[in-house]
Design a binder for these strands. Structure first.
Lengths: 197, 197, 197, 197
DNA sequence: TATGAATGAGGTTTCATTCAT
DNA sequence: AATGAATGAAACCTCATTCAT
């Protein structure tokens, strides 16, 4: 009966959702929650603002969906460090290099926005508690300890060192979210010196 | 009951302005430009929102005034590094420690907000060009070179290294602007490892 | 598998229209004109909202069609009172009983909505002038006069009494349109006392 | 310090609130909840729509405030019946006459709107449960029983009769909310016949 | 005929700014 | 100088209507 098959419609919906979320991630990252206007997101996605509401009930829901996406996939990405080749410090080096990629900036910005705004949707706050930075630290603790025992990584409380390391990375991503601001994105090896023995 | 002299009035006015700017810096830092509402600033300053407009023509002017203040005083603070005691690396250590003080966070946040928002007043943008990060780097280049020659500071392009260093510091300040976000503010010595020989 | 004849198609179309109008009447009655959303009507009719527009050009046209239907059939129903058995007051009793049936509520609600809203389509307003309450009164005047002469019906201006009577019935139907509101639908005989000698 | 005394401001606020509520009652009564636009209410009150939000947080809150007002004062009005002069049926007659006053129409309409709309604020729904029609019936039961014993009021279950009576009155008020609709507002004595012995 | 994606006018709400007192 | 009432531009969101398939 339907002129488009169920499957075709499903595909259209999924593609549109992706398209909107990609556009929204950009805008949220660049402007923060209240600075991101629905009209900007619509324009960035090349659709009418009305259609946004066909796919996401509200700005809040849209923001939350993007954050969920960002957190889940970043968590996975960090977890894959154990499949990297090389010694612990070499694994850390690779992971750092991957993280610093400009394309990850929106993810860091979103999490930053999450902490910055105070009108964050409750749902998004839950996600923040579910995937805290501590999670990344825990994930890497074994690797880090191994590196310390091997004498490749500097001595000290691994929890704190890893926390410091992620904080530095997060900060760099956040301030480099805008182009042309005069900030620099340091070379991997410069940052790595913080934890290298 | 003689009326206040012109000068006394002027001084009262200036004190009020300081009070408002301090309150506004806090709010701008915590919420960003569009997230900071004039009513919040008024509440934080303990005055009515109407009174804000007796001291600052607009939100834009208020923001710009704060940014100017932040830039000028931070520039001065960094410049005073040459009066610090100790060897170059010790001077850098002291400067870093001073910078990382939580009370400086608003300054970094303001500059970050300046880069983040796109509805930044033109006046504020001019300030950004007038006091770019490069200025801080230039200020410290002689000290840094001295340290490298003394073998205290790691070899490499001093321009880039200093740029990296300031970027890391800026990033850390920005992400630690909100309390309770799980980020860490690393110990001075951890950061210092990035440039220490 | 011979294709449907023109006539059969027409009939199917008409049945669909009836189905939609019945659904719409329910929704309009319960929510009023602006409270009734096209999507609700479509859902109630079990079709997509897009299909509504194959049968009715607009919400206004749909509303008008329902009102026309309601007015025409109710006029006919009241007119049939003369074929009822019994004396004038008994005829009035039967008519009242028929009117008070819950299934007639949508008709009264529609006419009420017509008077309530101010964004009523011009076409519908014309209908309201074409079938005013006065029409019902005129229809019943002879019967009423007969009842008065027979001493069954209370004395007084029959125009006014009949007007009062219909107003009371209308009011009762309208406030009982929603279930569970605490209002009562009085017994026929209680209402009849208003006009019984 | 304040250029207007606390008291003056309070008075302005109260007057404005009254003015807005009166205007809103009119508009809500005429158009229902979703049909009443905030801009209409503002226009009716002769103020800007922005100012509405200075006094009432939302359309819902405004509606609820009016309903509360309506319910409380109508409850009081009905309760005062016992202070009326005359026999029970005469008291009922006076009460009826007071109720039927055109100025009370908004009150009935609001309660009707409350039952009609389905997007009624939760707060308003609570009020509806707190002041149900049964409350009015209970209030009048003693008087009604007295009238029945005195042979002035028709025999029958007083609960049901009073319920019927209020339903008829409510219905009449609701359908006569709009001017020029062809409905009639019956004379007190016509309605009274429903309960008079 | 039938569907649901897509649009945009219009309604609700927020908030920077003005102004009477 | 100080307050808070008042305004209106602009943001968010809803929903009647259109249109590709």
């Amino acid at each position: 009966m339907s002129p488009l098959t169920e499957e075709q419609l499903h595909q259209i919906r999924d593609e549109r959702k992706e398209q909107i979320m990609a556009a929204a991630a950009k805008v949220f990252a660049r402007r923060g929650i209240s600075g991101a206007k629905m009209s900007m997101i619509a324009a960035e996605a090349g659709i009418s603002h009305g259609l946004l509401y066909h796919y996401f009930t509200s700005k809040d829901e849209l923001f939350t969906a993007i954050v969920r996406d960002a957190m889940e996939s970043s968590f996975q990405a960090v977890g894959s460090v154990y499949e990297f080749p090389g010694s612990p410090i070499e694994k850390m080096r690779l992971l750092t290099q991957i993280i610093l990629d400009a394309e990850n900036i929106p993810y860091f910005m979103l999490i930053h926005a999450l902490h910055t705004a105070d009108d964050v949707p409750a749902e998004a706050k839950k996600l923040d508690e579910q995937y805290p930075m501590q999670g990344y630290v825990d994930l890497l603790l074994p690797l880090f300890g191994e590196g310390q025992q091997a004498g490749e990584i500097v001595a000290g409380d691994p929890q704190e060192l890893l926390g410091d390391y992620f904080s530095v990375l997060s900060g760099l991503m956040v301030i480099n979210a805008q182009p042309e601001t005069g900030y620099r994105m340091p070379d991997v090896d410069v940052i790595l010196r913080m934890i290298k023995a």
